[in-house]
Design a protein around this nucleic acid. Structure first.
Length: 648
DNA sequence: CGAATTGAGTTTTTT
DNA sequence: ACTCAATTCG
């Protein structure tokens, strides 16, 4: 059996093409992951390429793991799987090995957004930056600069006006302190790797020669630095395969530049283009509606998506009184179908533009007894106790890490005040001085860090620092936090070295730790409705999808209304949402809604009116009554403890 | 030092 | 409406 079997002709062509650059334009539901995995398997199995010579880059680590697993299935477990990861994880790996050439020691730590914020706050104070300076904006300016490969020297040269001049000073100092702390931020991982490759042509050549085949997924969401590094790596063999779809570019707010995909042919003139336009996921109605919306974008290359699937149901549109009724409507619809046995909870997803919208849905789902999981929201790794525990580990791994020291030097409170912190900071976090002031036996732990399993190290430091005792204060909250630490320990137990563990924690998004109303289990295959933002829905599919808040000001979001390109991105977001559904789309909007504390009356989203009327069935309250009167649902509601106020 | 009160800022989010 | 951070008070 060949790895080419079970592919359609276009997919087959895209998989088979291997000598030279190519761009695979993959519409939603067109079997993109299938093509990627089969292409890797094809190269290894039928073209005799060594896994060692293949590099695969994805948008998230989750996607990388999925591809790893699926390639493994195609190949049989004995074959080695190629390098697969994100741009960041690839660069972290290269730097871990080669960073000494840049004067960075290999035990560097990676600073996340919180670490960056506290560092920058310090800097602003020390440099006497005016107190009203918006430091978040300053930080994102620095981040954008790095994504555009602008050094602080260049930034200083071109800074215009007082704010940018301040940012320039912060940027310089920020880099200096990162270096002193032996730390890199996310942007640095890529920035420094590019720097490394330009300073050391031989090294670039080594990696570029090694990777005969480079595959990059979600190419429309790459930023400039990522674009440059992929070009550097592809220089020798020119075998770069970019996969993406401009209609699904939704991350420009993070520096992604979809012109990278539009310019692919200019950058690689020999490039062959493959279009995957057949959709296997959705009904004709859904595909047609999505196409009608996206064609309103000027900046849109028509892929002419099509499907052989049936027409299916019409798109349902519901005008609710307010957000409560909107949520109730969703809940009733779901219960009705589950009771009838035609669907189970996991077939449904509720998608929204902003996280704040999830609350009313959650409230009603809890009342109605609908199990759900909320994706996003509070991240596991940004919880206080997790950050504290990791800071303890990070100072053991890298005793120069000033941000981590400042976080835990007086946690739990042990009488180290501002003055002492200053002294310690000035000493460059001198370990003897620290032990003297805190009685924290840190030296011994640093000496023995590799002599014991990570979990044991974690247990020890949490004990000797008094952290365990500090949380064990008998409160509900303390117990919950200890529970979370247990979770962290179970993750830690999967790693052999401290370095491995810390790198994974920094680079890999929280293992699925969704909050559920039933229990705190982290198992993901529960029969629950999924609640998430449109952004996090990319790449997923559900039988039925509710997109709520189809209102001007929410989708498109009010902050996007001023610029045409921003509206176009909102439209792509809507397109992504609609194409998640296999069988049915429900759109809802409200006459008025309570949002961030004030009442708003929004008009229905322009994207709704871009769908031709013949695809839509307008649902009214009386339509709801027919569900409401249904015997099964009525009985269900009667059995609930809190059955007040269910009349619409 | 730590608790309590006030105040600003709330799009999307991965790495 | 609500969170989170910064400042002020005991």
């Amino acid at each position: 059996m060949s790895v080419l079997d079970s592919l359609n002709p276009q997919q087959k062509e895209a998989v088979k093409y291997f000598d030279g650059p190519s761009l695979i334009v993959a519409g939603p539901g067109s079997g993109k992951t299938r093509v990627l995995t089969h292409k890797i398997a094809y190269l290894i199995k039928e073209r005799g390429v060594s896994p060692f010579e293949i590099l695969g880059i994805t948008f998230t680590n989750k996607a990388a793991n999925e591809i790893k697993e699926r390639v493994g299935n195609l190949m049989g477990a004995s074959t080695r799987v190629p390098w697969l990861g994100t741009f960041h994880s690839m660069c972290a790996r290269i730097l871990r090995k080669e960073a000494s050439l840049l004067g960075i020691s290999p035990n560097y730590v990676i600073y996340d957004t919180d670490d960056q914020k506290s560092l920058i706050k310090h800097i602003a104070k020390d440099l006497d930056i005016p107190p009203r300076t918006n430091l978040s904006v300053a930080l994102s300016s620095i981040s954008s600069a790095k994504n555009e490969l602008v050094t602080f020297e260049d930034y200083e040269k071109y800074a215009y006006g007082p704010f940018q001049k301040d940012v320039a000073r912060i940027y310089r100092e920020y880099q200096k302190r990162l270096h002193q702390s032996n730390a890199l931020d996310f942007d640095d991982l890529i920035f420094k790797t590019i720097e490394l490759f330009s300073l050391n042509e031989g090294l670039r050549d080594t990696y570029s020669r090694r990777f005969k085949y480079i595959l990059i997924d979600e190419y429309q969401d790459t930023n400039h630095a990522q674009y440059v590094i992929s070009k550097l790596l592809a220089k020798n063999h020119n075998n770069i395969c970019a996969v993406g779809d401009m209609s699904q570019a939704i991350y420009s707010f993070r520096g992604a530049d979809f012109r990278n995909i539009l310019n692919f042919q200019r950058d690689y003139p020999a490039a062959k283009i493959f279009n995957l336009a057949q959709n296997y996921r959705s009904t004709k109605t859904i595909i047609d509606a999505a196409k009608n919306i996206i064609k309103h974008n000027d900046n849109h290359i028509d892929l002419d998506l099509w499907t052989q699937n049936d027409k299916g149901d019409l798109i349902s549109l519901y005008e609710a009184e307010d957000e409560k009724e909107e949520s109730l409507y969703i809940g009733f619809n779901i219960i009705d179908k589950v009771l009838k046995g035609s669907s189970s909870y996991k077939d449904f997803a509720v998608l929204y533009r902003t996280n704040a919208q999830s609350r009313s849905v959650e409230e009603q789902f809890i009342r109605l007894g609908i199990p759900y999981k909320l994706i996003g929201g509070i991240k596991f790794y940004s919880r206080k106790e997790i950050k504290d525990a990791l800071s303890f580990l990070r100072v053991i791994q890298n005793p120069k890490d000033s941000v981590s020291w400042e976080r835990i030097i007086n946690t739990p409170p042990r009488g180290v005040g501002k003055k002492s912190v200053d002294d310690l900071s000035k000493s460059g976090w001198d370990l003897s001085l620290i032990e003297q002031k805190t009685r924290l036996p840190i030296k011994g732990l640093i000496r023995n860090k590799d002599a014991m399993p990570v979990v044991e190290l974690l247990d020890k430091i949490l004990d000797v620092s008094g952290y365990n005792e500090y949380l064990n204060d008998g409160t509900e909250e303390g117990l919950y936090r200890l529970e979370n630490l247990k979770e962290l320990k179970s993750v830690a137990s999967q790693f052999l070295t401290l370095e491995d563990f810390l790198e994974n924690v920094s680079l890999v998004e929280a293992l699925d730790v969704p909050t559920t109303n039933n229990d705190r289990s982290i198992s993901t295959d529960k029969d629950t409705v999924t609640l998430m933002t449109l952004h996090s829905a990319k790449g997923l599919e559900f039988k039925e999808v509710f997109i709520i808040g189809m209102e001007e000001g929410l989708l498109p979001h009010s902050k996007s209304l001023f610029a045409k390109e921003d509206i176009e991105e909102e439209r792509r977001l809507c397109y992504v949402g609609i194409t998640r559904a296999k069988e049915k789309i429900h759109l809802t909007y409200t006459r008025s809604r309570l949002y961030l504390g004030s009442m708003n009356s929004n008009i229905v989203s322009r994207f709704v009116s871009e769908i031709p009327g013949e695809y839509i069935r307008f649902n009214t309250k009386s339509g709801m009554q027919t569900i409401h009167m249904d015997k099964g649902l009525e009985k269900y509601l009667d059995n609930l403890e809190d059955s007040r106020d269910f009349n619409l």
